[in-house]
Design a protein around this nucleic acid. Structure first.
Lengths: 349, 349
DNA sequence: TTGTACGCGTTATCAA
DNA sequence: TTGATAACGCGTACAA
């Protein structure tokens, strides 16, 4: 018995009595050979069960894999369950699909110190949400295309949302009705991990490290405009944008006696705001009468419920599309800023 | 100026005056050379900026890419925003990560008739949710590892949840309090796409084509046990598990006059059930007093709200882990069945 | 313990 | 329009 080896382009060429170059052309450049010969080659290929040029060999030869990698800041488990990250990926996938490219998912939070070797096959990298550790970044092919999203990498194009303007706008809206006790719930803002109140002893991350710092600046501007001293507004911090992590931070706030409890919660994400909403409902607090709540993101879950969430919508899908177009060279690699949209719902009319 | 060509293993070997085999071994088989030499090689590699063996060349040589592809039934846009699919992917990613493998995302619903060529680089394929078209399946490398999830592919291992038993259990629970007008809301059950009532003229898909057929069988068994003729229970069908598609189907049901409106809705997914819950609340219907609702899946969104959803929890994450272990050969390739858990919430106490 | 030499399957170049 | 041939960068028998 001969070994049932997989059939290759070379086998096919030998079988047909033509050169490998011609077979290759039959698959890749139809204009380079006569239609008749091409037909004969394709027919024989089908007959012999040859599926076309091997992807790995082609990649080695051409130096391109037609794979684009997205490097997510959080674990895949978190990112895949997060509406904002998921929408972003949708946008990326949409463009890649139409361009015959394929999507590889990577995470900065992984068990290994380096990316798996297979990661470096990608033709380009979209880095989402957070600067990976320098060593991770080093392990990427140095000349690969790279686009940063929601943060900056020196010398690379970045895609941002105008966080500061957006937060100033939503805070302005909320402050049109003066709150007695406004409060801010931040997301990953402290230098050291912290789930709870932010005190004077906490150092905050800089604007180049986290988008939420820009959001806070927006809130502060609006507060100052209304003559409210931002320093007097109590703040809390949350490390992970999930119900499980948000709830224990928010519960004590809502359980404060009525004359200490905030009557306006400016939240840095819809997940935080929705968690607050759920917990408020469980406690019989009326929204917006007893408590007004604003979010950030504009995720579906906040809009398909009653009361609808007042929030700022960022078009994560479009952000993904932009990143993908840029990484594929469909768009010149230049940093850009996406606009946001204030969405007035029922949680803060 | 010489071209700044990327440095290769061969360059490194020449530079050091050792053979390529030795350099290769320094990276891949530390035991095959003296520690001293290995140190020298690794050091020089760092100095010259050599990042280790090229992934494509290695893949061509070894025939393995350390990439595992997941083929999703729906579009990536849908799948990434669906809690059940996302959890499944989390489970897959978790195992792949610990094994130094990488995750490629593919969808059966794409613009092209064939998968992009890069898809065939994957060492294995996890096919999730639905049989892809035969031509798509054909375009996969014939000898690649393959695992089906939530449906069957002849001659391949499959991973299932016990849909029938689960649905019989939850219907049994619901029917302990006899409903006056029970109804069933199905998901992708009709042979022809249908968003609305299912009539006698509709053909239904078979159990080998869709898991929801098994779910229906479970409901029917429980109904028959209670002496209710399943044929008399009105059914609706929904094609896509999103709020946008569910709502227009459910609204007319909830808008029926009180003496025609169902008082028990057996839903085939949590998304359907949650949409019904939201719409019911908007209409001032009391749940569970006026309307009892059950779901399927056990997604977080249904448990972190009031009233909590009565549902069946399937462990999608574990399903993903199993699929990944099997595709990596950590587990023998054999079909298996996951247990589910009845979760009694407030929507149908 | 280290080196030689071949082949993995393809595409690009150049010549016919 | 087609063919011959040299890379692409690496892994691994096998020999030394």
């Amino acid at each position: 018995m001969s070994t049932p080896r997989r059939i290759t382009l070379k086998d096919l060429a030998r079988e047909l009595g033509v050169s490998t170059a011609t077979v290759s052309n039959a698959f890749n450049r139809p204009d380079q050979l006569s239609p008749a010969l091409r037909e004969r080659i394709l027919g024989e290929a089908r007959r012999l069960g040859y599926r076309g040029p091997d992807a790995m060999a082609r990649s080695l030869r051409t130096g391109r894999s037609r794979i684009i990698a997205v490097i997510l800041a959080e674990s895949l488990t978190y990112s895949l369950n997060d509406a904002v990250a998921s929408e972003f990926l949708s946008g990326v996938a949409e463009v890649l699909d139409t361009q015959g490219h394929t999507l590889l998912l990577l995470s900065s939070r992984q068990t290994q110190a380096q990316f798996p070797g297979s990661a470096s096959m990608a033709d380009g990298f979209i880095v989402y949400g957070l600067m990976p550790s320098p060593s991770l970044l080093e392990s990427l092919p140095s000349q690969a295309a790279l686009v940063a999203v929601d943060f900056d990498i020196e010398g690379r194009p970045a895609i941002h949302v105008d966080n500061e303007v957006a937060c100033q706008a939503i805070a302005r809206h909320a402050l049109r009705m003066p709150p007695r006790r406004p409060a801010i719930v931040n997301l990953r803002l402290t230098a050291e991990p912290c789930n709870g109140p932010i005190t004077a002893s906490h150092r905050l991350l800089g604007a180049e490290q986290t988008i939420t710092r820009s959001r806070l600046t927006g809130f502060y501007r609006a507060l100052a405009e209304r003559g409210i001293d931002p320093a007097g507004v109590p703040m809390w911090n949350i490390e992970e944008n999930t119900f499980e992590v948000c709830a224990p931070v928010l519960e004590p706030i809502l359980d404060l006696p009525g004359d200490e409890r905030p009557d306006l919660l400016l939240c840095m994400s819809d997940r935080i705001a929705l968690t607050a909403l759920t917990l408020a409902e469980q406690r019989g607090l009326r929204v917006p009468e007893d408590l007004r709540i604003t979010g950030f993101d504009g995720i579906a879950e906040g809009q398909y419920r009653a009361p609808r969430l007042t929030t700022v919508r960022q078009d994560s899908t479009e952000k993904g599309r932009m990143a993908a177009r840029m990484i594929l060279g469909l768009t010149p690699p230049a940093s850009s800023l996406l606009a946001t949209e204030l969405m007035v719902g029922d949680s803060c009319p």
